[in-house]
Nucleic acid binder design. Sequence first.
DNA 1: TAATCAGTTATCACAAATGATAACTAATAT
DNA 2: ATATTAGTTATCATTTGTGATAACTGATTA
Lengths: 84, 84
Amino acid sequence: MAVDKLHKLIGRRIKMLRDKHNISQQVLAAKCNFEKSNMSRIEAGNVNSTISTLNKIAVALDIPLKEIFDFSDLQKMRDSSDKN
Amino acid sequence: MAVDKLHKLIGRRIKMLRDKHNISQQVLAAKCNFEKSNMSRIEAGNVNSTISTLNKIAVALDIPLKEIFDFSDLQKMRDSSDKN
DNA sequence: TAATCAGTTATCACAAATGATAACTAATAT
DNA sequence: ATATTAGTTATCATTTGTGATAACTGATTA
């Protein structure tokens, strides 16, 4: 898998988890002690985040870090170039 | 949990997974296309790795990325300052 | 219409991860 | 004794993530 797609998956996963909590990027970012613009680029999959950043989000969402890497619930929005 | 401890946990987890494969840091690093010194500092928990780095390791070990964050098998080598 | 809320995007300075090299220790094998 | 293997550590240049600010769009609300 392309590393870029992985970042998008992580972003979609975070958004899904955030939506479950019914909070805005603004509020989640505040819980993480950073700005909403940073949350936006993470959810957009535009960065190769570090563990500490993702851990802040996991803590703010009160979930284990590994949950962020569970993509099984994500609707598979893939293009035709994907193999499976 | 201190972020530093998290990096140590990840390092111990990677070592455990590498040991299961019976390969050296050298060999695993080569599969990841980087040097053994980099693998050493990751396993030592001296860096706040990015997702792309950990994903290279997961791919090299042929495991899902989330496995790296499953610390349940790790023997709890904690000091007395820890709460639980 | 004006104000507020939610999210995106561009830009910047600073800190830190990455990748590489080299020197080192310790253990094992020839 | 020497060579090899495994892992650690220090250092360096380069790249990139982080955190912040500000300007923007679009939707909703007063």
